[in-house]
Design a protein around this nucleic acid. Sequence first.
DNA 1: TTTATGATTTAGGGTAGGCTAAAAATAAAA
DNA 2: TTTTATTTTTAGCCTACCCTAAATCATAAA
Lengths: 220, 220
Amino acid sequence: MITLTSAEENYLKAIYHLSDGGKKGVSTNDVSAEMKTKPASVSDMLRKLGEKDVIEYRKYYGLHITEEGKKLALQTIRKHRLWEVFLVEKLKFSWDEVNEVADELSHVKSKVLIQRLDEYLGFPKFDPHGDPIPDEYGDVRARPRQLLNELDLGSTGQIVAVKDSSPAFLRYLDKVGAYIGARIKVMDKTEFDGSVEILVDNKKSIFMSKDVAGNILVMV
Amino acid sequence: MITLTSAEENYLKAIYHLSDGGKKGVSTNDVSAEMKTKPASVSDMLRKLGEKDVIEYRKYYGLHITEEGKKLALQTIRKHRLWEVFLVEKLKFSWDEVNEVADELSHVKSKVLIQRLDEYLGFPKFDPHGDPIPDEYGDVRARPRQLLNELDLGSTGQIVAVKDSSPAFLRYLDKVGAYIGARIKVMDKTEFDGSVEILVDNKKSIFMSKDVAGNILVMV
DNA sequence: TTTATGATTTAGGGTAGGCTAAAAATAAAA
DNA sequence: TTTTATTTTTAGCCTACCCTAAATCATAAA
Ligand SMILES: [Mn+2]
Ligand SMILES: [Mn+2]
Ligand SMILES: [Mn+2]
Ligand SMILES: [Mn+2]
């Protein structure tokens, strides 16, 4: 059985995201930027992850995540997202404050803890940011999504995720009245600057710049 | 502001318990036995804790916990016991399985997390083993307790804690039908071997050896 | 095809937290 | 009071994870 330290879990999760779920190769500098550690530290960690066979690492040529690595990364993501659900649904955290705490919680070593937590939360399929929660075998049911700025005039849907989940952006959304789960309809599109006007829950009208709309994923 | 690492928190909590809440001095070997680390490692840690002024440490003569140390230890104990309540009340763990997981959870660094957890649990005053949960200022409201084997014939009370909280003992209690919170009455005492017969919740009659009864604390 | 640039790795060092073996101090026994 | 036994500390070593500075490799430019 492969076991990873907390640091190794964090690196592997970052690598999984950077590789787009295993589709792309990843460079040392990519990981360095994502993890906010120096390239020299990354080289050392990649050697270790390579020895544990969760990545395939060729010196000077970057890495590819392995099937085993994907499985472990998805388990870590599962734990992280379940704790995010707990923090928002049960402890009333707002969705822009949960990331760091969920990261720490997700490293607690106990299989049964995660099973019970999942059950307690009612087996949620998505986290507070709309990202899918893998099941205990690593399977993910992703919903078809489109960027809000690419929707046609008059089309309807439901906000399911955000690309940029920085606290600043999440707070902005809260302020204007948008949220994960909101049902929306595209009321107007300005070709000139790409801005859109949407109706939220058939009630509230919101204007959004192209940049903002391009960070919002909608299930149609 | 003094900040402690997870390891330092664990040592300090152990020292707090060994010193009976600050009443007694503690030796290197005491700590070594409790923490299951070697005396050499303990010496090193005691030096560090001394430098952080959470203990007063004299080489070769052991240590005393300081007022600051007591406060910090009580905060760690508070976190540990709140997580134990969460695991038992919400995630349906049994009381003999929660210690290790609660230990890991209690090291997550977030003040607001503990406040919200406390609120979510309804500000519990006691953990699943009947031990009191300090408030955020370190104040503890302890209930007057007596050992079950020292109760007089015919006296009544409620089981509030166990001295020995080993999984084996806790499972034994579960099996015979005793539990924290149970209302009991002493029906018979055998002078010869110190064994007792108690009535639980006015229903079930249980025979107990002196050893077992001497591990059970009762609020009279 | 040679050179320059940028990416990456290696070398060496720091802190935290363990360990063993040996030395030193204290406490107990003779 | 001297010797012995026990406790505690020191010295030196190890792993994990991070760093800076220097060396090395790959590749883009000349
Ligand atoms: Mn997150
Ligand atoms: Mn998330
Ligand atoms: Mn406990
Ligand atoms: Mn407890």
